[in-house]
């Protein structure tokens, strides 16, 4: 076993070293390759996007004819904001409420809810879109509300999962301290548990928002899109940044593709900003400090 005792062991030792070094090199190359890939995607979108991204892009709607140059995605940016806003208003109370029921009360059906949440996370968003089409669009037509509903369904299970994890991190001591003072269960949750978990909860919501901002497929089946003008009425069909990128990217006109690249860069920037804020908020968490 000992390598220094005989010359005969040297061959074995060097073979082991070669294998080990080969591993080091392989893993380093794989890691570097992955980072290069990230750089390739971000860099490509950055370079192409910056060619057109500017004040006009952020303040104009697209030209009536997709082949024309100029114009921007303002209506999509507004549409995305409205629909993600609707989705957040739906998903946050349901998501956090479910997490509270599952984690704090552990009442009947809590196990089922937890399991189905995991199942929901894995459901393709296109199926979610088809579902909202069936329950909403069939009756009320394509609309921003339908889009918001679909995005809300995408966000809810994500929020349940992160919220549940964050509530679990709140120490039982704090709940006991509050209950022992003669504070009811609901007050304890609202005034002690939720504030303690708040930064973690916000992180979860931000990540879900970032995810919803980028969704395209379910919106094609629910909000449909509207390239003509700024629509702020959520009962009407509505565009989103992602829908406009998709629509302009597949036209084949260089002018439209230029807009789509600028849109892609804007979308990535928004998503990354939300992701970054989420990480920063998550870091200065009251839980992490304990």
């Amino acid at each position: 076993m000992s390598e220094s005792t005989g010359l005969g062991a040297v061959g074995l030792l060097s073979r082991r070293r070669v294998v080990d070094q080969a591993l080091t090199v392989t893993l380093s190359v794989v890691m570097a390759g992955t980072l290069a890939l990230l750089l390739w995607v971000l860099g490509y979108v950055g370079v192409e996007g910056l060619k057109y991204l500017g004040p006009e892009f952020l303040t104009q709607t697209p030209p009536g004819n997709a082949a024309d140059a100029g114009g921007g995605f303002l209506n999509g940016i507004i549409g995305s904001t409205i629909m993600v806003g609707i989705a957040t208003v739906i998903a946050v109370p349901i998501g956090v409420g479910t997490a509270i029921y599952v984690q704090e009360y552990a009442g009947p059906g809590a196990g089922t809810a937890r399991f189905l949440t995991d199942v929901l996370v894995g459901i393709p968003s296109i199926v979610t879109g088809a579902f909202v089409y069936a329950i909403w669009v069939v009756h009320f037509g394509f609309s921003g509300i339908a889009g918001g509903l679909a995005l809300g369904l995408v966000m809810t299970p994500l929020i349940v999962r992160t919220s549940e994890e964050m509530l679990r991190l709140v120490s039982r001591d704090l709940r006991e301290a509050s209950l022992a003072m003669g504070i009811g269960r609901a007050r304890t949750i609202v005034s002690v548990v939720l504030p303690t978990a708040s930064s973690g909860l916000i992180t979860g919501v931000m990540l879900a928002v970032a995810r919803a901002m980028g969704e395209t497929a379910p919106l094609l089946l629910t909000a449909l899109g509207n390239d003509l003008f700024i629509e702020t009425n959520p009962t009407k069909r509505m565009s989103s940044l992602s829908l406009q990128i998709f629509g302009n990217a597949i036209t084949g006109y260089r002018t439209a593709q230029a807009r789509a690249w600028a849109g892609a860069l804007t979308l990535i920037a928004l998503v990354l900003i939300f992701t970054l804020i989420a990480r920063l908020v998550g870091r200065r968490s009251a839980i992490a400090g304990r």
Partner: peptide, 24 residues
């Protein structure tokens, strides 16, 4: 009453999650 109402609300949220999958 407030305690029970709050618990009922959270139970409703959990029920919505369960129902949404079945409804889907």
């Amino acid at each position: 009453r407030a305690d029970r109402a709050f618990r009922a609300l959270t139970a409703l949220a959990a029920a919505l999650v369960i129902v949404s999958l079945v409804a889907m």
